[in-house]
C-alpha cells in the first residue's frame, strides 16, 4: 500500500500559493479607500509565508522532539503504572502467602506450647508425687528413729533408775542416818537422777 505522508516541508509552498490565490477576492474587496486600511494581498502573503516557515521549522525541530518526548513520558508512566499494579498484585499474593505461613506457624507454635504445657504438667505431677513419696518415706523413717530412740531412752532410763535404786539402797543399808542426813541423801539422789536424766536427754 502506498503511503501519502504529509510533511511540513512538502506542503508548505503549494499551500501558500493556493491560499494566496484564495485570498485575492478578500484583498480586492478590502482595497476600498473609504474605510480604514484593512490590509492587502501583501499582508496575506506575508502571513502565509511566515506560517509556512513556522510549520517547516517547528515541525522539523520542535514538535517532533516535544511530541516524541511526551509519548515517551506517557509510555514510561503507563509502564510504571502497569509495573506498580503488577508489584501490588505480587505484594498481595506474597502477603497472602506469608499470612498463611504465619497462621501455620502460629498453629504449630500453639501445638508446641500446648504439648510443652502438657508435658510440664505431667512432669510437675510426677515430681510432686515423687516428693510426696520421698517425704512420706523420710517421715516414716524419722518416726521409726524417734520410736527407737524413745524405746532406747526408756530402756536406759529404767536401767539407770534400777541402778540408782540399788545404789541408794546400798547407802541406806550401810549407814544409820538421822533425819537431816536422810533428807540430804534423798536430795542428793534426786539431784543425781535429774542430772542423769538431763545427760540422757542431751545425748
Amino acid at each position: 500500500m502506498s503511503r501519502l505522508p504529509i510533511s511540513p516541508s512538502k506542503v508548505s509552498l503549494p499551500l501558500v500559493f493556493t491560499a494566496a490565490i484564495l485570498c485575492i477576492p478578500t484583498c480586492a474587496s478590502a482595497a476600498d479607500k473609504s474605510i480604514p486600511y484593512p490590509g492587502d494581498l501583501g499582508q496575506a502573503i506575508a502571513a502565509l509565508l511566515i506560517f509556512a516557515g513556522l510549520l517547516f521549522v517547528l515541525g522539523k525541530w520542535a514538535w517532533k522532539p516535544i511530541l516524541s518526548l511526551l509519548h515517551q513520558r506517557e509510555e514510561s508512566i503507563s509502564r510504571s503504572l502497569d509495573e506498580s499494579t503488577r508489584r501490588e498484585q505480587e505484594a498481595k499474593d506474597l502477603k497472602g502467602l506469608y499470612q498463611a505461613r504465619l497462621g501455620a506457624v502460629e498453629e504449630e507454635a500453639g501445638d508446641i506450647i500446648a504439648q510443652a504445657r502438657k508435658e510440664a504438667d505431667a512432669a510437675g505431677r510426677q515430681i510432686i508425687n515423687a516428693a510426696r513419696i520421698e517425704a512420706k518415706k523420710k517421715l516414716s523413717c524419722a518416726q521409726r528413729e524417734i520410736d527407737e530412740a524413745k524405746a532406747e531412752a526408756r530402756r536406759e532410763l529404767s536401767q539407770m533408775t534400777a541402778k540408782l535404786a540399788v545404789d541408794i539402797a546400798e547407802r541406806v543399808v550401810a549407814r544409820n542416818l538421822d533425819a537431816n542426813e536422810r533428807s540430804r541423801l534423798i536430795e542428793d539422789s534426786m539431784e543425781e537422777i535429774r542430772k542423769n536424766m538431763t545427760d540422757a536427754q542431751n545425748e
Binding site: T18, A19, A20, C23, G39, D40, Q43, A44, L48
Partner: peptide, 18 residues
C-alpha cells in the same frame, strides 16, 4: 487585519481540500 485572517482561513480550506 481582515486579509491576514483570510490567509489563515485559506490555510484551513486548502489543507482540508488537499
Amino acid at each position: 487585519v481582515l486579509t491576514i485572517c483570510a490567509a489563515l482561513a485559506s490555510i484551513t480550506l486548502v489543507t482540508l481540500i488537499v
